[in-house]
């Protein structure tokens, strides 16, 4: 504060000499120029539009990955099933220092992966007799028994050549193979895409369940990583093909590449906390001694206003207050 008072205050800009200038003309020329530039860039480079992945394309292209994912959804071991808030209470979620913000926000989009992603779609479509029997057997079994079946089948799929369900060694998997085989049929026919989207109402714009199921598999991730969109590939600022992406997210995605963020179990919360702090610093920069002095000390301003300083020699601009 004291330092501020000894430094010269900034005078009123209206006390300075002026020269004629046409603001409106400048604005009109700018709009025309940017419009023409946009027309040109759009004509020359177009824009990307990679087709979305569907459950149908996924289950046709990689039935093994689809089946393995379906078993984890049924057994409650998928990423979504183990996520915690806002989808379920299976985990506490991340913390920002001592603050469990994720838990505080609560379960706002409840998802029961076994029921929502597997059992309900099976029940909602015409059931072959084998599926009806398998569903009855699953429902009659204890939670322990269900976990044993899905665990054993997951392991067996992992050991089968290419994860092919047809080549799984014999074992006690209960009704699980019948259920997932039927779900694969529904997936490949495109029925499951519609079922995951329709949450009991006709019109629908919420893709939460469909996207979470897709993201639990590795097919979507493989497509994205091929396009350099992975989190550890600075993917947040990238775009498919050779298009520029959200380059302005460089700092946000940077933190995910370095320690301690990279390997922290609270990485997301830490990065968000860091970015919130840095945004606050940028916002409040005019009030932060040191940071607000950088322009005065770097003297780039002398280049910007060199015409003025040449015509109006200012003995010591560096002593002025910033």
């Amino acid at each position: 504060m004291k330092r501020g008072r000894t430094r010269e205050q900034t005078p009123d800009s209206h006390a300075f000499p002026t020269r004629p200038y046409d603001l409106v003309k400048e604005a009109v020329i700018a709009v025309i120029a940017v419009t023409l530039l946009t027309f040109g860039l759009a004509a020359v480079f177009s824009s990307p539009d990679e087709k979305p992945v569907t459950v149908a394309t996924w289950s046709q292209a990689d039935p093994a990955d689809f089946t393995a994912t379906a078993v984890t959804e049924l057994g409650g071991t998928s990423a979504t099933a183990q996520y915690g808030p806002p989808y379920n209470t299976a985990a506490d979620g991340q913390k920002l220092g001592p603050l469990p913000l994720q838990t505080w926000a609560g379960v706002k989009h409840p998802i029961d992966t076994a029921n929502d992603f597997v059992l309900q779609p099976l029940r909602q479509t015409p059931e072959p007799a084998a599926v009806t029997a398998a569903l009855a057997r699953w429902n009659a079994a204890s939670a322990d028994q269900q976990t044993k079946w899905t665990g054993a089948y997951s392991d067996a799929l992992g050991k089968a050549p290419n994860g092919d369900p047809a080549k799984v060694a014999a074992g006690d998997y209960g009704p699980v193979p019948v259920l997932t085989a039927r779900l694969l049929q529904l997936g490949q026919s495109g029925t499951l895409d519609a079922q995951l989207l329709a949450e009991g109402h006709y019109f629908q714009t919420d893709y939460t369940r469909a996207l979470l199921f897709l993201a639990d598999g590795s097919y979507l991730q493989d497509q994205a990583r091929t396009q350099h969109l992975g989190g550890d590939q600075w993917g947040m600022m990238n775009e498919t093909g050779n298009y520029p992406g959200q380059a302005w997210l460089w700092l946000y995605t940077f933190w995910y590449q370095v320690q301690p963020y990279k390997s922290s179990t609270n990485a997301d919360a830490l990065v968000w906390g860091t970015m919130a702090l840095l945004s606050a610093l940028l916002l409040l920069l005019p009030f932060i001694p040191g940071l607000r002095d950088i322009p005065r000390l770097t003297r780039v301003y002398k280049l910007i206003w060199r015409d003025w300083y040449r015509d109006h020699p200012t003995p010591n601009p560096g002593t002025a207050r910033t």
């Binding site: 990307p48 087709k51 989190g231």
Partner: peptide, 23 residues
């Protein structure tokens, strides 16, 4: 498109971690 699918399923983790994703 694929962008939207990937960006949304990735960005949800950041937003959820600080409680914003619930809303």
């Amino acid at each position: 498109n694929l962008d939207s699918q990937w960006i949304s399923t990735q960005a949800k983790d950041g937003l959820n971690s600080v409680g914003i994703g619930a809303y």
